[in-house]
Write a protein that binds this DNA or RNA. Structure first.
Lengths: 354, 354
DNA sequence: TTGTACGCGTTATCAA
DNA sequence: TTGATAACGCGTACAA
């Protein structure tokens, strides 16, 4: 592949002149300037990002570390980051951690040696990343955590307003007349899961509704978790009439379990999820959800990184994105019968026969 | 950040010795060997991938160029590729093209300068990539196209057996008794869309069923396309009783349009999609689909690349993965009434009132 | 077996 | 404004 030497030779100029033309680092007079540009065209020359990075002590790469691209919420986050990155001349290195902290560490350590412009991290868990981040900062590389935060995180961050989102969703259920509410949360060592539970609890407290511990189940952020914990919830007496799920995947599991038990959504049980994934639109009934923009999460993080790169060295920024309660067909007021007397599983079974 | 010089100084050995220890390029005696390893540990030293790549003329990166990570089929492909890559010490650079050929070219040109081990490409369209690929091959870098192929592609490839998959799905519908079949294909300049149409046509021909042109609609591979083309199909006389969709996103659009028109799936219209996405399980009715493993597509491609890297320079490989017809609740035999007389839209409307 | 010196392709410095 | 040269960090051929 052609290199600068060859361009210099073709254009009959020196190495430095070629570099100056390519980087506008110094004015080059017209006859030579075009000769260089022509030679570049002819040879199809592209500067080696490797050599350039080594020399400049930084590359046009942005590292992105996420738990699992297969989780439906993350692709739009990645896409958001990539769009901003690409349009500014940066490229994304994508790393999945599978929520495995050791894999996270491997990526964190290795990515540094590519001298990336910055790093966007969706932490796999609550493990402290301060030490790693510090080592990046020393190299002048920005690190921004998004979606959830690791322990003691004091650097830049972009998250959704989980607490308010959960609060609004719960309040809506309460205003509809529900008094027997339950929630299925994601792993509580993740800050987003924890905050959503807090929002839920706050709304309950404000409405002077009590929350027995068994009405708040913790599980993984997936369909399977939602499914099995719903089976637990449906056996409780009194049976909950509304379930706030920690995310849409959990909500999907809730829906399946409810359907399978012979109960109906929303007549017997209302469901609200979190994330507002596309797949929530096509379920039956369609899923109400707290909408947060993954795409915006990504773009905001990338932009933050580029700002830092431009020299913004102000104090750490903690950007919190608003959420929006998106109502579809999975919520309704509790039925009269259920309000009058404490419902039992029997009642649900009976309804099935109807 | 610590470099080899520092390690050498700390361990009291020369630069070359450090390199030899790190790369096992030469036996180093025990006292020094451990001293080097200790120094590496203490300093948290990681070799610069940039410098190493420049020197070795190749890096541990694999470029992956896809249309859009936001399309639900692609994440598992990416994940498959990344898993194989990671466990062999390689990393993935992810690039979205948005089916924009010019963006594809930009990535193709730039990625080369990172001296990646290989390239996995899901081509954005039928545009010829032979020239680009050739330039990679000259640099000893493998290129493998997956899912669909560009014009005149003669290099390595991994694709699904689209034709057989579509054929089996169509044949199943015919065996159920359907005679009025229609299909909504993806963009026919994409080889996978074209092959699926061919499979559909072959099954039709074998069953001696005629296919008027308006019963084969072409659109984009998304929900919107499926939705609007279904509206067209439902107005045809006789109305089709079964629709084979070019992929699951289209099938989803079909389902929505059918539902909205007051017809029922599968009683009035059977639907089969392609891809077997997760979201097909949770629709109502659940979606029958031709299952192909995106994950396997990714792993196979990555493995192919690594094999090439190991020195396999045999002729181009064209790996074709099998598909599997996954039957769920969106298919049924045509109703008797529909079989007896040609159904009209009126009939559908009538049923709505029932 | 160990150490030294060179080169990978680029950018930055400095002298002309 | 231009050109020559050093340096980025590493791997390796070659000399010791």
């Amino acid at each position: 592949m052609a290199n600068m030497h060859e361009i210099a030779k073709r254009a009959g100029v020196s190495l430095g002149t070629v570099s100056n033309v390519l980087n506008n680092s110094a004015k080059v007079r017209e006859p030579k300037r075009t000769r260089v540009l022509e030679a570049v065209q002819e040879a199809g020359y592209q500067p080696s990002q490797l050599a350039r990075g080594l020399r400049r002590d930084t590359t046009n790469m942005i590292g992105m570390i996420i738990p699992d691209i297969t989780n439906p919420f993350f692709p739009s986050v990645v896409r958001g980051a990539e769009d901003v990155a690409f349009s500014n001349g940066y490229r994304l290195i994508l790393c999945n951690t599978d929520n495995d902290h050791s894999k996270e560490i491997v990526h964190l350590n290795e990515l540094r040696t590519y001298l990336p412009t910055g790093l966007i991290v969706i932490p796999s868990n609550f493990s402290d990343l301060t030490a790693q981040a510090e080592s990046y900062r020393r190299a002048g590389t920005g690190v921004v955590c998004i979606d959830r935060l690791p322990k003691h995180w004091s650097g830049d961050s972009v998250t959704a307003d989980n607490k308010t989102g959960a609060y609004n969703a719960t309040r809506h259920l309460i205003q509809l007349g529900h008094t027997q509410l339950a929630t299925i949360t994601g792993p509580l060592h993740l800050t987003n899961a924890k905050e959503r539970l807090e929002g839920f609890k706050r709304a309950m407290k404000e409405a002077k509704l009590s929350l027995a511990p068994e009405y708040a189940q913790e599980t993984s952020f997936d369909k399977q978790g939602g499914y099995s914990k719903t089976q637990v919830l449906l056996r409780l007496i009194p049976r909950p009439t509304a379930i706030f799920a920690g995310n849409d995947m959990i909500a999907l599991g809730v829906l399946l379990a409810v359907r399978e038990s012979g109960l109906r959504c929303p007549e017997d049980i209302s469901i609200i999820g979190f994330d507002d994934l596309d797949l929530g639109e096509t379920t039956n009934p369609s899923l109400s959800s707290v909408s947060q923009s993954g795409y915006q999460l990504g773009t905001t993080a990338a932009r933050l990184l580029l700002d830092r790169r431009q020299g913004d060295d102000g104090p750490a920024k903690h950007i919190v994105l608003e959420t929006l309660l998106k109502l579809r067909h999975s919520v309704a007021p509790p039925s009269q019968a259920l309000q009058a007397s404490a419902p039992t599983v029997k009642r649900g079974t009976k309804r099935k026969r109807t």
